[in-house]
Amino acid sequence: MSTSAKYWRGIPQRYRLEAERCASCGMEFFPPRLVCSGCGARKFMPITLGDHGKLLTYTVIRVGPSEFCEQTPYAMGIVELEGGVRMTAQIADVDFDDLEVGMPVRIEFRKIREEGQAGILCYGYKFVPAD
């Protein structure tokens, strides 16, 4: 089963962090949506998220889903980016003992998963410790 269309559709978000800001209340959304969950407005301005933020929480996945089994163990976290948008992603290039709430991170472009030996390669954002 190819997931090309599904993957392709998400490229603006996964590659370039394209998001939006509610034209009415200013709330930022990633990914973009059609209705503001803050105020109900339906008009938005396109924005691009910054690539720095801080870690709100984290874990180390020791048992992964089938497509990630080869990658375990890997760290994951929820990060609040400058601007307030929050997202979940893996934390790469980190020593697990260094993980802590509040840790500054930045985003790097990484390969997220492979669809088997012959399928497409799926890229996107991961966090890495900020210097």
């Binding site: 080869e70 893996q90 290039d93 790097e108 472009f109 990484r110 390969k111 997220i112």
Partner: peptide, 16 residues
């Protein structure tokens, strides 16, 4: 390279 790094990912970061 880490398993999540390849020519494409390194190219993107170098280009940034």
């Amino acid at each position: 390279p880490s398993p999540d790094q390849d020519v494409i990912t390194m190219s993107v970061e170098a280009t940034k």
